[in-house]
Computed example of a mutant assay.
Amino acid sequence: MSSSDIFIGETIGTAILILLGGGVCAAVTLKASKSRNAGWLAIAFGWGFAVMTAVYIAAPLSGAHLNPAVTVGIALKDGRWTDVPVYLAGQFLGAMIGAALVWAAYYGQFHAHLTDREIVGGPGARKTSAKAVEARETGAGPVLGIFSTGPEVRNAAQNLTTEIIGTFVLLLAVLTQGLNDEGNGLGTLGGLITALVVVSIGLSLGGPTGYAINPARDLGPRVVHALLPLPNKGGSDWTYAWVPVVGPLIGGAAAAGVYNMAFA
């Protein structure tokens, strides 16, 4: 596959991943959404289906890594690093495009949510929730969770460990069961397997941090959150932003090491 195919495939695929994954978060979170308060089960399955859809779209062009941790893990497995920068560029650009598309699709809901005094505070609000107080202290705005992840208990060591463990499980499954015949991306069956693994990680390990398990999935939309003209959007929680980048990269590298020792 050519560099242009890789870049186009990763850009389109990651944009679809974030559009559908961020979309389910928006559907569950935002005021005036028919799916509001549908819960964590909807989010976990929504992200799983988002992965499956994105993989099937991008696989013919790029092998559908859609995740820097996957790209680095495969490179560590086979020792080929030439195309890694192209994969990463497409993934981060696609993640930003996908996040912008979520905003466009839910434009009215974002406005209704972020101008509701019960949500953002101000005159007329009955009370300030503990979550709202924490958000002000940490710089996490009221819709940041639609774009990127954040911890329920803010402890850097634990949060990093959770992301490492979740990504380790994802990459070990990809490397052992999900790769195509060439070993450089996800195949047709691999897309389904990976989607189900993502659902499993979400249900079992996603509660503490929101399970980024993908640096592009978190960092790209966080940048978009910081740039979008959203009223009362609050901060983008940059003090936490390194955790969902570093943790998945460590977890992916660890999975590649275990794969090379035990399975290769």
Rank of each mutant, 00 (worst) to 15 (best):
S3D: 15
D5V: 00
I6G: 01
I16M: 13
A27F: 05
T29R: 05
R36W: 03
R36E: 02
G39D: 13
L41V: 14
I43H: 03
G46N: 09
V51E: 12
V55C: 12
V55R: 12
Y56N: 12
A58D: 07
P60V: 10
G63N: 11
A64F: 12
A69E: 14
T71S: 15
G73R: 10
G79S: 10
R80Q: 10
W81Y: 15
T82L: 12
D83C: 00
V86I: 15
Y87E: 03
Y87F: 15
A89C: 09
Q91C: 13
F92E: 03
M96I: 01
Y107N: 11
G108F: 09
Q109C: 06
H111I: 15
D116Y: 06
E118P: 07
K131A: 14
A132D: 00
A132K: 08
R136L: 11
E137Q: 12
E137F: 04
G139M: 11
G139K: 11
G141D: 09
I146S: 04
E152C: 01
L160S: 09
T161V: 08
T162M: 15
I165N: 00
L171G: 00
L175W: 14
T176F: 06
L179Y: 07
G183F: 04
G190I: 10
L192N: 02
L196V: 15
S204Y: 03
T209A: 03
A216C: 08
L219G: 00
G220R: 07
H225N: 11
G235P: 06
D237Y: 14
A241P: 06
G247A: 10
P248R: 02
L249D: 01
G251M: 07
G252Q: 11
A254F: 15
A254C: 12
M261T: 04
F263S: 04
